[in-house]
Design a protein around this nucleic acid. Structure first.
Length: 228
DNA sequence: GCGACAG
DNA sequence: ATCTTGTCGC
C-alpha cells in the first residue's frame, strides 16, 4: 500500500514537536469508526540490545477468525533518540516501509503505543493513521499521560483515562485479573469502537493477537540471518 | 526544586 | 525496548 510522507524528518526535539503540532489538525476524530472491518493490522518493533538496529513487523489478520492473511518485516535503524512524547519518530520510517510492502490494505491499524493519550494528542497511532489515511488505534502497556481509577477485575471492565480535564483514552482489562492496557483513538475511530475492537482481538491473552503476532515476527526477524 | 516519563 | 533468577500462584 501507499503511505504519504507529509513532512521532512526532524533533526531536533523542537522540530519533532512542531511536526506533531502541524499534523494534529489532520486527524479525523468525527464518526464512530470503520463500518466494516474485514482485516486488522498489528504493528510492533523489536530492538537489538546496544545498537540502534531494529525490526518492524506488520501482521494482517482476518478480523473474524484472527487468522493471519499477510505479513511484512523490515530491518532498520532507530531514526531518533528515545524521548517520551517523541517515541514515534524512532520507529516510523521502518514501520512505514513495512506497511508499504503490504499487498493488503487493512481496515484498521492496531499500534503498540498511544494515540490521543499523548501530551500533544498525537502519539504513534495518530501519526500512522494520518500518514496512511487508515483508521488506527493505540494500545499501550503502560501510561504516558492521564489519571484513572482502577477498572474492575473482570475482563471487559474499563475506566476513563483523563488528562488536563479531557478523556484521552480508556484503561481496559482484557482478561480477568491481568494488568489493564491503555487504549486510545488514533485516526478515524472513536474510543468506544476502539475498545470494542481491542477486546475482540484479545480473547485469550492480555495483549491483542495483532500485537502478539507482530511482536513474535519482529523478534524472529532480529534473530534471523544478518545481511551479509 | 522534585518526580514522571509510550517503546 | 532489553538485560535477568527466583518466586508466587493456579
Amino acid at each position: 500500500m501507499k503511505v504519504r510522507t507529509l513532512h521532512s524528518w526532524p533533526a531536533t526535539a523542537d522540530e519533532a514537536e512542531a511536526v506533531q503540532d502541524r499534523l494534529r489538525p489532520l486527524l479525523d476524530l468525527t464518526g464512530s469508526g470503520p463500518a466494516e472491518v474485514g482485516t486488522v493490522a498489528g504493528l510492533d518493533v523489536s530492538y537489538e540490545e546496544g545498537t540502534d538496529r531494529l525490526a518492524a513487523a506488520v501482521v494482517v489478520l482476518d478480523a473474524a477468525t484472527l487468522r493471519p492473511v499477510e505479513e511484512s518485516v523490515v530491518i532498520g535503524t532507530a531514526a531518533f533518540p528515545y524521548v517520551p512524547g517523541l517515541f514515534a519518530f524512532r520507529e516510523l520510517p521502518t514501520l512505514v516501509e513495512a506497511l508499504e510492502r503490504l499487498t493488503t490494505v487493512p481496515d484498521l491499524l492496531v499500534c503498540d503505543g498511544h494515540g490521543l493519550a499523548h501530551p500533544r494528542r498525537f502519539g504513534l497511532a495518530c501519526h500512522l493513521g494520518v500518514l496512511t489515511g487508515l483508521p488506527s488505534l493505540g494500545v499501550g502497556k503502560t501510561r504516558l499521560v492521564g489519571s484513572y481509577d482502577p477498572p474492575g477485575e473482570p475482563r471487559g471492565s474499563m475506566s476513563d483515562l483523563v488528562d488536563a480535564g479531557e478523556v484521552v483514552g480508556r484503561v481496559l482489562r482484557t482478561q480477568d485479573g491481568v494488568r489493564p492496557v491503555f487504549v486510545s483513538a488514533g485516526h478515524r475511530i472513536d474510543l468506544d469502537t476502539a475498545c470494542r475492537h481491542v477486546l475482540a482481538l484479545a480473547p485469550d491473552y492480555r495483549l491483542p493477537e495483532t500485537t502478539r503476532r507482530a511482536d513474535r515476527l519482529s523478534r524472529q526477524a532480529l534473530a534471523g540471518p544478518l545481511p551479509a
